[in-house]
Design a protein around this nucleic acid. Structure first.
Lengths: 104, 104
DNA sequence: TTGCAATATGTCAAATATGACATATAATAA
DNA sequence: TTATTATATGTCATATTTGACATATTGCAA
């Protein structure tokens, strides 16, 4: 039986582990995914703090509202590159990004 | 005339600015590229500190020596996702990654 | 020198991420 | 209710990133 946490990851399109290793994440996989999801949450926080709509932000990064929505939902189809670019474009500081990195 | 800094970026394959705006980076572009390059340098530092060859690390991340070399060279063809995954696989801590984020 | 391990560079088909678009859902006001 | 704005979800052709491979270069010991 899967944990609800993992279920949620898989709902978002995350391929958790390899085919032969379906239930476990390596610590490295886990750290990477948690870092990414934390940055996605931070993006939503900062965007709303700056009173920007998803469409506003999309325009700034030459993308579309739907892609911003996917980023903020932590969808597996979006790259860290786009999340970081979006954070800066939304007005995040390096400090904001630093603080978004989970402990340990 | 281009700055040597920009020349170096373009040597590494970075598309700096748009076609119409060839000399300037937006502050957001600049922050993103600097963050990425800093993480690439950190990867090399940590890998060597751990006495791993590029091939060793490549094996850990199911990639190839040449891609690790490109990462460490700050080549524009590598994603932040791969750099972050590599950092964790090389044994970097969240603190290491946090510290790699440039100020301001 | 020569030999060998490590790293760098270039290329390419396959895999993945992309913006754009349609459309669904939610939230809020009139 | 309806209208409107914001956000969510699904799809798809195109663009970018991928691991793999060949091969060049570097560094260093014998």
């Amino acid at each position: 039986m899967q944990s609800s946490k993992q279920k949620k990851l898989e709902q978002n399109g995350w391929k958790v582990g390899s085919a032969s290793d379906f239930l476990e994440l390596t610590p490295e996989e886990e750290a990477y995914i948690e870092l990414k999801l934390s940055l996605c949450r931070t993006l939503k926080k900062i965007r709303t703090r700056k009173h920007l709509t998803q469409s506003d932000l999309a325009k700034k990064i030459n993308s579309s509202q739907s892609r911003v929505a996917k980023m903020e939902a932590g969808d597996a189809s979006v790259s860290l590159d786009l999340v970081i670019k979006s954070l800066f474009s939304a007005g995040a500081s390096s400090k904001d990004i630093r603080n978004a990195i989970p402990q340990s």
